[in-house]
Design a protein around this nucleic acid. Structure first.
Lengths: 203, 203
DNA sequence: CTAGATTTTGAACATCGTTCAAACGCGAGG
DNA sequence: CCTCGCGTTTGAACGATGTTCAAAATCTAG
């Protein structure tokens, strides 16, 4: 048993990741089992360990793909807008929409913890940084000061992330899932209003 | 072996929860094992299942205690302030401080997911509602309109929660942990400024 | 066609949550 | 003071988990 030419190594990795995606979507993170994934792609558990160091490594790659998808969504959302207000609103609503659409994958992306001692790859952190950069750019018209804009962007992004985090976990209690859009919209509007006000104050 | 009078049932539950606390603090959620907890309190694994339905049930009770502690922190923070600005700031900084102080417990509180089908107890949701109520009350001077204040409070709380969530997970990237305080402070200030501005606009 | 290189396997190990019949110790009734 | 019974505690057992690795199987080069 050693079918060499059934699939490329890269194909196998992709198949495993897709199987993982399906499992997470269907049963949550608990559905991610080595044996389950292996049988889903028609291989034995041991083969998975030729493709990835271990399940944590597989999850990191899955998360990277999710992050890439999210990045794409934000980019297209941004491309279809004209005014600065619309850009910011589009980014936020795209972020929220993606979260609600892919609750489980999004949850895995931000809640997966590596065992202590292991660090996230640097390109991973860089991707998150890129997301922040996009938001920071969208915030430029509202906050001309170069120095503190990064901090403001980070604050706003954290805020929206918090809404998504609670919504995805079903911990917004009495608020429906639809409510996540409303809450984030309020957060954005009030925050932008605050930015403008403080900008006025500095002139 | 059936030492009846060693400890009350309630004492046992408390011992188990305290052992769980220590384990989570030391090794994260992964450190929570039935056998580990049992040996930590000097009993056998089976005994744990006389005290709690299962590990998920134990975690829910642990989270309830954590939530209670957090609630207490916010209350005392609130009691030591005079002005509305100080109240809001005190609540936010108390929330952030608790998060950084108890990263693992806080993470367990918000990131633990029950297996699908099981719901969180209602008193649990009510406690979260109480937290929101405190913040909403602190926001009263900034946002007189009764109707939308709840939404504003929720939005702000989600925002602060997002900062904490990313900070506790070490996903604020280049920002140090100390940065969580700064980010949340910016979020609060800008948000409050925005609230005042919109309030002005409505009169 | 053969031999070397590589991929794949699946049994094995340790550990996990959870169950439950049996063993045990304490308090009440004689 | 003894005994009986009830409730507590145990720990072996079961199924499932992640992970390893020697052996088996297949492909490719010569």
């Amino acid at each position: 048993m050693a079918r060499r030419t059934d699939h490329t190594r890269e194909e196998l990795r992709e198949m495993a990741l897709e199987a993982a995606r399906r499992a997470v979507r269907r049963e949550g993170p608990a559905g991610l089992t080595a044996r389950g994934l292996a049988s889903a792609i028609g291989y034995s558990p041991g083969t998975l360990y030729n493709l990835f160091a271990d399940l944590d490594d597989l999850i990191v790659h899955l998360n990277a793909a999710t992050l890439e998808t999210l990045e794409g969504r934000l980019k297209t959302a941004l491309a279809q807008t004209a005014s600065p207000e619309a850009s910011a609103a589009a980014m936020v609503s795209a972020y929220v929409a993606f979260t609600l659409e892919e609750k489980a994958l999004w949850g895995l992306l931000f809640e997966h913890r590596l065992p202590p001692g292991r660090e996230l790859p640097t390109w991973y952190q860089q991707r998150i940084g890129a997301l922040l950069g996009m938001l920071e750019e969208a915030l430029r018209p509202f906050h001309p000061e170069e120095a503190s804009r990064a901090l403001a962007a980070r604050a706003l992004w954290c805020g929206v992330h918090g809404v998504c985090s609670l919504a995805a976990g079903g911990k917004l209690a009495s608020v429906t899932d639809q409510g996540a859009a409303e809450v984030s919209e309020v957060l954005l509007k009030v925050f932008l209003a605050g930015l403008e006000k403080t900008a006025e104050g500095h002139h």
